[in-house]
Design a protein around this nucleic acid. Structure first.
Length: 556
RNA sequence: GCGCGAUUAGCUCAGUCGGAUAGAGCGUUGGCCUCCGGAGCCAAAGGCCGCAGGUUCGAAUCCUGCAUCGCGCGCCA
């Protein structure tokens, strides 16, 4: 909806410049915001103040000039009133017609509502979760999964072509440790005393894998070459765990387009090709028997080793190769979603990407803060090493997929999140999920009622929306018309949590409206108009929920 | 020690490129069901936006310093 307005204001600025009323030079991209209070009209823009600050002019005077031009340009099509106010705001009150069009747009577009085009079809990859296949996913991974998936949805809605990818870290020492851990449990199952590796994985799931191993292969690994067995067992265990991870994510509503294996990358020649490329470009040097990447040339704190003195590769080396591989697949931009404890890697990874000839911005890293699980307001103790952690699966089974996903998406990624298990289960308005879903169910209930009473659901063309004259109705329309802008903003800022804020606000507006006014009124035409409005609100709510991967129930 | 991030109401947090009287939920207090689902609604109280400077017509927002908290700083993965 803002689109029309942006065009009008741009045109008005252009006109004003032509007349020499505002200074020449680059015109500011107008910021148009929904006013938080209707007494400021429907929308407000600060262009006049921006212009004034550049030219030391009088903002109120400039606002007056632009306000006049806006009216000229609009020719009474969309805008009812233009006022200048405060330090130089231009407040715009839209005509009823403008809002009626907004509602009809929603009704016509239905599930496609809020599809935008800022992405311009650019290809963008979101890599997320990427947990090591050495144990089950825990809550923190769940948050990353919810954020990554919702962000991918939002980007797609904003007109990007999106791919979801999971990077499987299956090449490092931790896989060997996993193999040794399972092997020790396996020996125990045969009554053999087996020293458990000091850094081994303690969890219950290791024993389960050992049991599966015994079931499938019997005592085959008791004899024979230890090294060889260990490799096989490690691979076996990692595969088992990966399958569980995949199932977990599927149950959580997250699907990946690509599962990319680190070990496959390492087995190929891509790592050496990547290093060759860096070497040719002069980014590498030898020192102390190791090969270093001069990342300090690209704003990193210190240079980084890529090949150790013993000739083996660092993890960072394969990461460079991995990112090179990503870009070779034609993505314009890649987004990595990492745990916040990895923030020390951001600078070096960006340096790596730049050394490969890309821009710093071509790689974006979104850091996700930890989740503090609580029960009865008390923190739930977790320790990965001791194998005591609450898994994503446990949380999902306890509170449900919708509640878990929604709560993960209520805060921005880079802020800590308290997740109260009891609250998540509570069916009250303390629980934001239910509050929002209830708004949707409530509308469905009204429509069911209408159907039962034989009230026809209005057609988009025939309905007379000019009957919607209440301020509360205007509020609803203002909100639902803002979804495309919210989606666009969320995509550009990579902040899917903005969708949940939108949902909270429109739900409040809906509940308030519902309480004070009857949709199924005595007047037939009025009822039809209100039903149309309800359907539009429901459409917007359902759309926003779907972007978050949360269901929109018809009854609860 | 260096780097990154955080600090907004009693609690948990929003706050869009620097704009108008800084918002929401919970909690507290007080109200609202003859009527489409009370899983809801309304109202009140509650603020030195960590502290001190600076830039600006205007700062929670930008800059500098300080404080507190978290995280990161390996030829680990």
């Amino acid at each position: 909806m803002k689109g029309t307005l942006t065009e009008i204001i741009n045109a008005a600025l252009e006109e004003a410049r032509k007349d020499g009323l505002v200074p020449a030079g680059e015109l500011p991209a107008p910021i148009i915001e929904l006013t938080r209070d209707r007494k400021y009209g429907d929308y407000a823009t600060n262009v006049a103040m921006v212009l004034a600050s550049r030219s030391a002019g009088n903002p109120r005077k400039i606002a007056e000039i632009i306000a006049k031009k806006i009216l000229d340009v609009d020719r009474e099509e969309n805008i009812d009133r233009v006022e200048t106010a405060g330090p130089g705001f231009i407040n715009l009150t839209m005509k009823g017609r403008f809002w009626e069009r907004a509602v009809k747009t929603v009704l016509q577009e239905g599930g496609d509502y809020a599809k935008g085009a800022v992405g311009l079809g650019r290809r963008i990859q979101v890599e997320f979760v990427s947990a090591n296949p050495t144990g089950p996913l825990h809550v923190g991974h769940g948050r990353g999964a919810a954020i990554g998936d919702a962000l991918a949805n939002v980007l797609a809605a904003a007109g990007y072509e999106v791919e979801r990818e999971y990077y499987i870290n299956d090449a490092g020492n931790q896989i060997q440790t996993l193999g040794r851990s399972v092997f020790a449990r396996y020996l125990e199952l045969f009554g053999k005393s087996a020293p458990f590796p000091e850094d081994g994985y303690q969890g219950e799931y290791i024993i389960r894998i050992a049991e599966n191993l015994r079931e499938e292969f019997g005592d085959r690994y008791l004899e024979g070459d230890r090294e060889e067995s260990m490799d096989e067992i490690a691979r076996y265990a990692a595969n088992e765990i990966l399958r569980d991870i995949r199932d977990d994510l599927e149950d959580f509503g997250v699907r990946f387009d690509v599962w990319f294996s680190e070990s496959a990358l390492v087995r190929s020649d891509e790592v050496s090709l990547a290093l060759d490329e860096l070497g040719r470009a002069g980014h590498l040097y030898r020192e102390g028997g190791a090969v270093w990447f001069r990342s300090t040339a690209m704003d990193d704190d210190k240079d980084r080793v890529v090949v150790k003195a013993d000739g083996s590769l660092t993890y960072f080396a394969s990461d460079i190769a991995y990112h090179r591989n990503k870009f070779s697949r034609g993505f314009d931009r890649i987004i990595n979603i990492w745990g916040a404890d990895h923030h020390g890697y951001v600078a070096r990874m960006k340096a790596g990407v730049m050394a490969l000839g890309r821009n710093r911005e071509d790689l974006a890293v979104l850091l996700v803060q930890l989740v503090n699980l609580k029960r009865h307001g008390q923190p739930v103790a977790m320790s990965t090493r001791a194998g005591e952690f609450v898994t994503l699966k446990e949380v999902r089974e306890e509170v449900g997929r919708d509640a878990a996903r929604f709560i993960f998406l209520t805060r921005k990624a880079d802020s800590k999140l308290d997740f109260d298990l009891d609250l998540a289960k509570e069916q009250s308005n303390d629980n934001p999920v239910f509050y929002v879903q209830y708004a949707h169910a409530r509308i469905c209930s009204i429509i069911r009622n209408a159907e039962q009473q034989g009230i026809p659901v209005p057609g988009v063309e025939s309905v007379d929306l000019s009957r919607l004259t209440l301020p509360e109705e205007r509020e609803l329309v203002r909100h639902l018309a803002s979804l495309p802008d919210v989606v666009e903003g969320a995509a550009l800022a990579m902040e899917p949590h903005r969708i949940s804020i939108f949902l909270r606000e429109i739900s409040t507006t809906l509940h308030n409206y519902y309480y004070h006014h009857r949709v199924l009124a005595d007047d037939r035409e009025l009822t039809a108009a209100r039903l149309a409005l309800m359907i539009a609100v429901r459409t917007a709510v359902a759309k926003a929920l779907s972007l978050l991967g949360v269901s929109a129930p018809e009854r609860m």
